[in-house]
Every structure is written in C-alpha cells, then in structure tokens.
Design a protein around this nucleic acid. Structure first.
Lengths: 205, 205
DNA sequence: AAATTAATTGAATGTTCGTTCAATTTATTT
DNA sequence: AAATAAATTGAACGAACATTCAATTAATTT
C-alpha cells in the first residue's frame, strides 16, 4: 500500500531538464539547484531521485548514448531492400537530425570523462561497438542479397563511423552554412566509397 | 625602472600546472586554489596574471592548440625527400606521441566549449585548418617532385585528418593494447590510401 | 640610498555548490 | 477513516569557489 512511485516519470523529466541546462550553460555549470528551478521543483527532490550529482551525470550519459542507437530504431528498418536500407542509414548519418546529436557540447563533455572514469569508457565503448555491429549486419545483408560485395563488412562499417566522427569533429567548427552542406555531402560520398572499396559492383547514385 | 616583469615565465608555469591538474581531475574540477597549491604560490597570484578563471581557461586552450601544430615543427621537416617527409608526418599522426595529444580529457573538454563560445570555435577552426593546409602543402610538394599524383591535395589532406580525428575518437575507448595497436595500424593504412585514391602511382610500403 | 615598480602574500568577501534531515503533503490500500 | 508509503518541501550545513583589496617583499634604476 501507500503512494505509487513516480520514479519512471520524474527521473526522465529531471534528466531532460539537466540536459537542457547543460546544453545552454555547459555541463560544468549545470547544477542541481538550477535544474530544480527549471522545472519548479525543490533541489532536494533531485537528490531524492538520484542521491548524488555524480549519479545524475551518469544517468545523463546513458540518456545521450541511448539516442545514438536510435538511428537504427526508426522507420528505416521497414525498408524492404537491404541495399536501400543501408543507404538510408548512411543518409541519416549525414543528415540534419544526426548532426544535432553531434553538434552538442554536452556529448563531448560526457565523452571527456572517458579518460578518467572506466565505467564511462566502457559505456561509450559498448554503444560505439553496437553502432558498428548494426551497420556491419546491414552490409552483410546487402552482400547476401547479392546487391553488393563488400569483402570486409566489419572494417567497412568501422570506417564509415570513423568518417562520421571525424567529419563532425571538423564540421562543428564550420559556421558557413553553405560550406557545411558541401563538406557534409563530400564526407557522405567518402563514406559510401568505403562500401565500394572492396566491392565488385558499384552502387548506382 | 622598478622590478622586471616575470609574466613570460610565470604565465606558462601556471598554465602548465592548471593543465596537469585538469588532466588529473577534469577541467571542471581544476580550480585556481588547487593550481596555486600545486606550484606553491598564492591563489591571488594567479588572478594577478590572468584576472579571471575564464582567461586562464582561454590561455589553456591556446596552449593545447599550439601543441597540435607542433607536428609540423619537428625534425621531420629536415627530411630531404618530399614523399618521405609526407609519410613521416602520417607516421607521426598515428604514433604514440600524437596519441597522447588526443587521448586527453582536457582537449575534449576544451573542444566542448566550441558550441557555446564563438571565440573558442574560431580558435579551433584556425588550427584545424592550419593542420590541413600544412598537409596539403606537403602533398603538393610530393606531386610536383613527380613522386605522387594526388588529384585533389586539399581534399586528401582533409580526409587524412577526418580519419585521424575519427580514429582517436574510437581508439580512446579501446583498453586492449594489442587491439589498439592493430586498429591504429589499420587506420593509418586507410589514411595512406587516401593519398592513393586519386594517385596514378602507388606508394611502396 | 632613495625611488620605483612588479611580485607576492594573506585576510576577507559573498556566492554557489551538493547534500542532510526533519516535517509536511499527497496518494493509495485496508 | 485509519494506516501506510512515497513525494515534496524548506531550512540548514560546511566546503569550495572566484575574486577583492590592502599590505608587504623583492628587484631594478637613478
């Protein structure tokens, strides 16, 4: 008996507010007090749900990493043709929505913890590997459907993400929208080329 | 008359201590008081030389960015053959010393400010562009010496750095030393391939 | 040695921080 | 309506923070 727990709704609400604040002012300036003020609750309530700021940050990291994986959990998957499906994912990786995930002060701040916190490092590793494995599986599907012939799907998938990560690292500094668009398109073509490097068959534009 | 300024020696000393501390505890936990304690001076002295913590961080960013450019300011340049010189730089980019610059919590924390501070963004842009221009110049030299024929040196240089940045973003999560070494070598080969993509002549291993 | 200027210290400031704890409110069950 | 358990508040804590200011020390010049 007694009151029902509100954890499942309150915790995400707090994490989202914390994230919003961190985006605005930087993770290092995102405090419990400010977060509480943002959603009109008492700071103690945040401690009630997360015990320490450290655990709140930990929850934030998981929140961010979950978003990364969502690229494989969208209507894309419903695409019937394996090669089309693959190219749709590549499209998405170099699209505006995916940009937003990378043009993100908070994500880089979280990433910086990788060097001081083994658990954070492990979390990031799991997600980045998952992304690679998912893409690898799609490449294999396209191979088996006879639509492509990538000799080493694992390495190809790896390289695609290396290009994605390296591309946004540089693109986030580009203020000129037109330059941004052009470069993004160039990097996308480079990523697609990775699927051709070992391919006997070329992908029609 | 009066006492001579010690700025030129004191400022770097303070920046280095601040950097050391930031590496150990994270930039967000690196305070003026702790930095002062580290080199046995009074906290006020740091304010004397930098006025605010913000300016100290700004100096730290410049310190870090200067180190990036040093890859082109080493004995490498003395190499007589343009192609050898180019490959030596590629070697360095995927070497242990360059690793250290990237396996660095502080650099990513600084980078995260890019999204909230236009000046920081501009600073990073200048340095990343400089790196690309330097490499582009070396590719052109090798082209003109008739040793290579890279059709688009600017894009090739860009791609090399995209691969470097993307590679370390993933590699920094790899704890297994053997895996790390293997993957680093693979990425290096991919970078070298970028110089061959448009080349009529292949580079002998 | 007197004057000058920067280096350096030390005490003090007000602010914000994360966290604790007891008290109160609110929802749910018996 | 009584019992229960979680939600929520509000006051309070000490710690650490960046920064200030005046006082002192140390080097350099005339």
């Amino acid at each position: 008996m007694g009151r029902k727990s509100l954890k499942e709704s309150r915790q995400p609400e707090i994490i989202k507010a914390f994230y919003k604040l961190a985006k605005r002012e930087g993770l290092e300036n995102a405090s419990i007090a400010k977060t509480a003020a943002l959603i009109n609750i008492n700071p103690s309530l945040i401690i009630h749900y997360f015990q320490t700021r450290e655990q709140l940050v930990s929850a934030l990291i998981e929140f961010i990493l979950e978003r990364y994986l969502q690229i494989f959990k969208t209507p894309t998957i419903s695409e019937e043709d394996p090669k089309k499906r693959l190219l749709t994912v590549i499209d998405k990786l170099f699209s505006h929505k995916w940009n937003i995930l990378f043009d993100d002060s908070v994500a880089y701040s979280c990433y910086s913890m990788v060097f001081r916190d083994k658990k954070v490092k492990a979390k990031f590793k799991v997600v980045l590997d998952q992304l690679r494995h998912n893409l690898e599986a799609m490449i294999k599907d396209a191979n088996e459907a006879g639509e492509m012939n990538v000799a080493d799907p694992a390495r190809a998938a790896d390289m695609v993400f290396v290009i994605v990560d390296g591309a946004y690292y540089y693109l986030s500094l580009e203020s000129n929208k037109d330059e941004y668009r052009k470069k993004l398109e160039f990097y996308k073509q480079q990523a697609i080329q990775q699927l051709n490097l070992y391919a006997y068959e070329t992908i029609p534009g």
